[in-house]
Nucleic acid binder design. Structure first.
Lengths: 234, 234
DNA sequence: AAATATTGTTTCTTTGTGAAACAATAGTAA
DNA sequence: TTACTATTGTTTCACAAAGAAACAATATTT
């Protein structure tokens, strides 16, 4: 991983909240930096010659191995306290880079993005800067550096209020899924149980689902229909 | 206005969409730069030693004379096409500043904010960089530089979907106002007429209004009640 | 005192929502 | 084959919310 510092927009970063779900609990992807005991969201910087959206996609792919996912921008964090020279210095020294003064040690304005994926379909790989990369339950996150816990909270708030509109864009579920699968997604994200009959009515009412054959799973009960998202829901 | 270029975060700007309303139409505050025939949103840069939110408040106050208003951040624009070296150079040369190469001529990532005010209660004053500053009807905006027309559209979209939650924060109406005044605000922003009886029911149902004495305007008809927003609506 | 314009409220109908009951069905066990 | 069970799909019912219209109240003018 090359890291020509001066190719980047100074003092600007992004942080991404990668929500993962797989049938039950909502998880979040967290990095731990080499030699720092610091937990953080996957983030990065914007090159002079790439768009903000592309920078986030590229950086996220490099740092986590996660590729081709739908990212939603939700807020830009610009308080003055957003700097961490000690940690940044340690991270760079771990890479054999020694700097006296640099914008990397100053304050950052950071653009927040989030995504929602099926964490069983990807295997995150830590990059050179990171010790580990792991999924953490939302209910038991470690303490994150700076304001990253706040960023997570704000991302989830945004996701919850826009779930109906955004669910289509996230390729969270497999191509074919049952109504129960879909309901479990909603329950994990909203953090509360949904009424089965009304949930079905609402989802079918949105007009974004296509019904397919039934799924014979072998259980001794009625087999559920399979659904997919319509490609053109209008 | 001092303008020590190196005190600012490079390549980062903000743009603000100031919606104005006064009884009928929705308007937007637009600047025209000296000697450039360029119309633009009021924008500016972020100092190294101030928060993003404060930078927007300070800059807006300096450039428009508008002070102490509630600003809502809604999106950060980061496409690669966001640069305009020719216009920037002209603006600076108009100030007697001649530069060969500088981040001001490069691309910007810009954070969008909007506000909503009663345009009769403020008198915008152009700053040194600007030729004029004027209110334009939303329906007949001039062509703005760069992607500023897109920024306006996105701001209005955000305002419309969050009007109920944000209206309290904007000090758009006078301290005391009638239900009709309030309805006209909604109709101007949402761009469609509202049913009178249901609008009243909905607004009173929100529990954010306090009813006061009647307003005797002299018209030959029943006098409407005056209302104010409750200070603690919960 | 009648007329008029506008506002506040009520009524009626339609639509949406939440909870429960009912119906269908794929397998299992007698 | 026939009950039995677990789960799913649908319907029903009560209730709340929303939209449209009618009705009632009231400042002012004629």
């Amino acid at each position: 991983m090359t890291f020509e510092l001066d190719d980047y927009i100074p003092n600007l970063s992004y942080d991404s909240v990668i929500f993962g779900f797989s049938g039950e609990k909502l998880k979040i992807l967290i990095l731990e930096y080499h030699n720092t005991e610091t937990f953080a969201l996957p983030g990065g910087f914007v090159r002079m010659d790439e768009s903000l959206d592309n920078a986030v996609k590229r950086g996220l792919s490099e740092r986590t191995g996660i590729d081709k996912i739908y990212l939603e921008q939700f807020h830009t964090f610009g308080s003055l306290e957003r700097s961490n020279p000690a940690v940044m210095r340690k991270i760079f020294e771990g890479q054999g880079i020694f700097l006296n003064d640099h914008w990397m040690f100053g304050r950052f304005i950071s653009v927040g993005y989030y995504a929602l994926i099926n964490y069983e379909t990807v295997t995150p790989k830590p990059d050179a800067l990171s010790d580990s990369i792991d999924w953490y339950d939302y209910d038991s996150l470690p303490e994150l550096m700076q304001d990253h816990n706040l960023i997570v909270a704000k991302a989830l708030e945004h996701l919850r209020t826009h779930l109906d509109q955004k669910l289509l864009s996230f390729n969270l579920l497999p191509e074919l899924f049952t109504m129960k699968d879909l309901q479990q997604v909603y329950e994990a994200i909203l953090g509360e149980t949904q009424n089965r009959a009304n949930f079905q009515r609402k989802m079918l009412g949105l007009g974004i689902l296509e019904r397919h054959e039934k799924l014979y799973s072998g259980g001794s009960h009625k087999a559920p229909f399979l659904y997919s998202f319509r490609k053109r829901p209008f």
